[in-house]
Computed example of a mutant assay.
Amino acid sequence: MRNSVVFAALSALGLAQATIANYTIDTASISLTTRSTWCQAQDNTCSTLCDGNPKTETCDPTTLIYSCLCQNGTAPGLEYYTQTLPTFVCNEAFSECITANANNATGQKACTTDIKDNCGTLDPSKYSPAAVSSSSAPASTAAAATSAATASAAGTATPTASSSSNAAPAMNHIGNGAVAVAVGLFAYLL
Protein backbone atom coordinates (compact mmCIF):
# COMPACT_ATOMS: atom_id res chain seq x y z
CA MET A 1 0.00 0.00 0.00
CA ARG A 2 1.53 3.31 -1.07
CA ASN A 3 0.65 5.11 2.14
CA SER A 4 1.91 2.50 4.52
CA VAL A 5 4.78 3.15 6.88
CA VAL A 6 7.71 0.87 7.57
CA PHE A 7 8.94 0.86 11.16
CA ALA A 8 12.33 -0.64 11.94
CA ALA A 9 13.91 -0.88 15.36
CA LEU A 10 17.65 -0.81 14.91
CA SER A 11 18.46 -2.81 18.02
CA ALA A 12 22.20 -2.72 17.46
CA LEU A 13 22.15 1.07 17.55
CA GLY A 14 19.17 1.46 19.86
CA LEU A 15 17.49 3.85 17.38
CA ALA A 16 13.98 3.85 16.02
CA GLN A 17 13.32 5.06 12.51
CA ALA A 18 10.23 5.49 10.39
CA THR A 19 10.19 5.62 6.62
CA ILE A 20 7.26 7.33 4.93
CA ALA A 21 7.11 8.48 1.31
CA ASN A 22 10.81 7.70 0.84
CA TYR A 23 11.94 9.77 3.85
CA THR A 24 13.45 8.22 6.94
CA ILE A 25 13.40 10.06 10.24
CA ASP A 26 14.71 9.34 13.73
CA THR A 27 11.49 8.82 15.70
CA ALA A 28 13.43 8.69 18.98
CA SER A 29 14.15 12.41 18.57
CA ILE A 30 10.42 13.24 18.31
CA SER A 31 8.39 13.26 21.51
CA LEU A 32 5.48 10.87 21.85
CA THR A 33 3.26 13.91 22.41
CA THR A 34 4.29 15.31 19.02
CA ARG A 35 3.79 11.95 17.31
CA SER A 36 0.33 11.70 18.94
CA THR A 37 -0.52 15.15 17.60
CA TRP A 38 0.65 14.06 14.16
CA CYS A 39 -1.60 10.98 14.33
CA GLN A 40 -4.61 13.02 15.43
CA ALA A 41 -4.09 15.42 12.50
CA GLN A 42 -3.58 12.43 10.17
CA ASP A 43 -6.87 10.87 11.30
CA ASN A 44 -8.72 14.18 10.90
CA THR A 45 -7.36 14.66 7.38
CA CYS A 46 -8.11 11.05 6.45
CA SER A 47 -11.71 11.59 7.55
CA THR A 48 -11.93 14.85 5.57
CA LEU A 49 -10.49 13.32 2.39
CA CYS A 50 -12.84 10.32 2.72
CA ASP A 51 -15.84 12.65 2.90
CA GLY A 52 -16.25 12.15 6.65
CA ASN A 53 -16.67 8.39 6.42
CA PRO A 54 -13.38 6.49 6.16
CA LYS A 55 -13.44 2.71 5.96
CA THR A 56 -10.07 2.46 7.75
CA GLU A 57 -8.50 5.23 9.79
CA THR A 58 -5.64 4.21 12.08
CA CYS A 59 -2.40 5.80 13.21
CA ASP A 60 -0.07 4.46 15.88
CA PRO A 61 1.97 7.28 17.46
CA THR A 62 4.55 4.84 18.79
CA THR A 63 5.43 3.31 15.43
CA LEU A 64 3.92 5.90 13.05
CA ILE A 65 2.24 3.05 11.18
CA TYR A 66 -1.01 4.28 9.68
CA SER A 67 -3.79 3.31 7.33
CA CYS A 68 -6.35 5.48 5.58
CA LEU A 69 -8.89 3.97 3.21
CA CYS A 70 -12.15 5.45 2.04
CA GLN A 71 -15.42 3.50 1.87
CA ASN A 72 -14.84 2.72 -1.81
CA GLY A 73 -11.51 1.04 -0.93
CA THR A 74 -9.31 3.81 -2.31
CA ALA A 75 -6.52 5.59 -0.48
CA PRO A 76 -6.56 9.40 -0.70
CA GLY A 77 -3.38 11.21 -1.81
CA LEU A 78 -2.21 12.06 1.71
CA GLU A 79 1.28 13.04 0.54
CA TYR A 80 -0.16 16.09 -1.22
CA TYR A 81 -1.80 17.53 1.91
CA THR A 82 -0.56 19.29 5.01
CA GLN A 83 -1.66 17.78 8.35
CA THR A 84 -0.80 14.25 7.23
CA LEU A 85 1.85 11.82 8.38
CA PRO A 86 3.67 11.86 5.01
CA THR A 87 3.98 15.66 5.21
CA PHE A 88 4.99 15.69 8.88
CA VAL A 89 7.70 13.12 8.13
CA CYS A 90 8.80 15.04 5.04
CA ASN A 91 9.13 18.26 7.06
CA GLU A 92 11.03 16.43 9.81
CA ALA A 93 13.36 14.87 7.22
CA PHE A 94 13.99 18.36 5.86
CA SER A 95 14.76 19.67 9.35
CA GLU A 96 17.14 16.78 10.04
CA CYS A 97 18.84 17.36 6.66
CA ILE A 98 19.33 21.08 7.37
CA THR A 99 20.83 20.25 10.78
CA ALA A 100 23.11 17.63 9.24
CA ASN A 101 24.31 20.19 6.68
CA ALA A 102 25.00 23.10 9.03
CA ASN A 103 27.43 25.58 7.44
CA ASN A 104 27.06 23.83 4.07
CA ALA A 105 25.06 25.99 1.66
CA THR A 106 25.18 23.39 -1.12
CA GLY A 107 23.95 20.65 1.22
CA GLN A 108 21.16 22.85 2.55
CA LYS A 109 20.07 23.76 -0.97
CA ALA A 110 19.92 20.03 -1.75
CA CYS A 111 17.76 19.56 1.38
CA THR A 112 15.33 22.08 -0.04
CA THR A 113 15.17 20.72 -3.58
CA ASP A 114 15.34 17.02 -2.65
CA ILE A 115 13.06 17.10 0.37
CA LYS A 116 11.19 20.32 1.26
CA ASP A 117 9.99 20.98 -2.28
CA ASN A 118 8.32 17.54 -2.17
CA CYS A 119 6.35 18.02 1.07
CA GLY A 120 2.57 18.30 0.82
CA THR A 121 1.16 21.81 0.52
CA LEU A 122 -2.57 21.42 -0.10
CA ASP A 123 -4.82 22.52 2.76
CA PRO A 124 -7.20 19.68 3.72
CA SER A 125 -9.76 22.22 4.99
CA LYS A 126 -10.15 23.39 1.37
CA TYR A 127 -10.92 19.88 0.13
CA SER A 128 -14.22 19.38 -1.63
CA PRO A 129 -15.41 16.05 -3.00
CA ALA A 130 -15.03 15.54 -6.72
CA ALA A 131 -18.32 15.74 -8.59
CA VAL A 132 -19.53 12.39 -9.83
CA SER A 133 -20.16 12.38 -13.56
CA SER A 134 -22.38 9.95 -15.41
CA SER A 135 -20.68 10.70 -18.72
CA SER A 136 -18.53 7.92 -20.09
CA ALA A 137 -17.24 9.81 -23.12
CA PRO A 138 -13.42 9.68 -23.15
CA ALA A 139 -13.12 13.32 -24.25
CA SER A 140 -15.17 14.50 -21.27
CA THR A 141 -13.12 12.35 -18.93
CA ALA A 142 -9.84 13.64 -20.31
CA ALA A 143 -11.07 17.24 -20.09
CA ALA A 144 -12.16 16.75 -16.49
CA ALA A 145 -8.81 15.17 -15.60
CA THR A 146 -6.92 18.01 -17.27
CA SER A 147 -9.08 20.61 -15.56
CA ALA A 148 -8.56 18.97 -12.16
CA ALA A 149 -4.81 18.73 -12.72
CA THR A 150 -4.59 22.37 -13.73
CA ALA A 151 -6.63 23.50 -10.75
CA SER A 152 -4.57 21.26 -8.46
CA ALA A 153 -1.35 22.80 -9.68
CA ALA A 154 -2.83 26.15 -8.69
CA GLY A 155 -3.70 24.70 -5.27
CA THR A 156 -7.47 24.91 -5.74
CA ALA A 157 -8.50 21.37 -6.61
CA THR A 158 -8.41 18.22 -4.60
CA PRO A 159 -6.70 15.08 -5.80
CA THR A 160 -8.92 12.06 -5.93
CA ALA A 161 -7.94 8.69 -4.61
CA SER A 162 -6.39 5.99 -6.72
CA SER A 163 -8.04 2.59 -6.70
CA SER A 164 -4.87 0.70 -7.54
CA SER A 165 -3.35 -1.31 -4.71
CA ASN A 166 -0.09 -1.42 -6.66
CA ALA A 167 0.18 2.33 -6.97
CA ALA A 168 3.67 3.77 -7.26
CA PRO A 169 5.30 5.34 -4.21
CA ALA A 170 4.73 9.03 -3.60
CA MET A 171 5.82 11.27 -6.43
CA ASN A 172 9.17 12.91 -5.84
CA HIS A 173 7.97 16.35 -6.86
CA ILE A 174 4.79 18.10 -5.87
CA GLY A 175 4.89 19.73 -9.31
CA ASN A 176 4.32 16.25 -10.69
CA GLY A 177 1.33 15.96 -8.37
CA ALA A 178 -0.90 17.57 -10.96
CA VAL A 179 -0.06 14.74 -13.36
CA ALA A 180 -0.79 12.18 -10.66
CA VAL A 181 -4.12 13.86 -9.93
CA ALA A 182 -5.07 13.78 -13.58
CA VAL A 183 -4.15 10.09 -13.88
CA GLY A 184 -5.96 9.26 -10.63
CA LEU A 185 -9.05 11.16 -11.67
CA PHE A 186 -9.03 9.52 -15.08
CA ALA A 187 -8.70 6.05 -13.49
CA TYR A 188 -11.42 6.86 -10.97
CA LEU A 189 -13.84 8.02 -13.65
CA LEU A 190 -13.29 4.88 -15.70
Rank of each mutant, 00 (worst) to 15 (best):
R2K: 14
R2A: 15
N3K: 11
V5D: 12
V6I: 12
V6M: 11
F7Q: 05
S11T: 09
G14F: 01
G14A: 09
G14R: 10
A16M: 06
T19F: 07
A21F: 06
A21G: 08
N22A: 14
Y23Q: 15
T24A: 14
I25L: 09
I25A: 07
D26M: 08
T27Q: 05
I30D: 10
I30R: 12
I30N: 06
R35L: 12
S36A: 15
T37C: 02
W38H: 07
W38Q: 03
C39D: 03
A41F: 01
T45P: 02
T45G: 00
C46D: 06
S47V: 04
L49G: 07
L49E: 05
L49I: 09
D51K: 13
G52R: 07
E57I: 06
E57T: 05
E57N: 14
C59T: 09
P61G: 08
T63C: 09
L64M: 15
Y66N: 15
Y66I: 13
S67M: 13
C68K: 06
C70P: 08
C70W: 04
Q71S: 15
Q71D: 13
N72E: 15
G77F: 09
G77Q: 13
G77P: 05
G77K: 11
E79G: 13
Y80M: 07
Y81M: 07
T82Y: 00
T82Q: 11
Q83I: 00
T84I: 02
L85V: 09
T87M: 08
F88G: 00
F88T: 01
F88L: 09
F88H: 12
A93D: 12
F94E: 07
E96T: 13
I98Y: 08
T99W: 04
T99E: 13
T99G: 01
N101R: 11
N103G: 02
N104L: 00
N104Y: 02
A105H: 01
T106S: 09
Q108C: 00
Q108G: 02
K109W: 04
A110T: 07
C111S: 02
C111F: 03
T112R: 08
T112Y: 15
T113L: 09
D114H: 06
D114C: 02
K116F: 10
G120I: 07
G120N: 06
T121L: 09
D123N: 14
P124F: 03
P124I: 02
P124C: 08
S125E: 06
S125T: 14
Y127K: 02
S128W: 00
S128Q: 11
P129E: 07
P129S: 13
A130M: 12
S135Y: 03
S136C: 09
S136Q: 05
A139R: 10
S140C: 04
S140P: 00
A142N: 04
A144F: 01
T146F: 11
A149P: 07
A151E: 06
A151L: 11
A151D: 07
S152P: 00
S152D: 11
S152L: 12
A153W: 08
A153Y: 14
A154H: 06
G155P: 00
T160E: 06
A161W: 01
S165N: 10
N166G: 12
A167R: 10
A168Y: 06
P169G: 13
P169N: 12
N172Q: 13
G175T: 09
A178N: 04
A178R: 05
V179H: 05
V181R: 01
G184Q: 03
L185F: 01
L185Y: 04
F186Y: 12
L190Y: 08
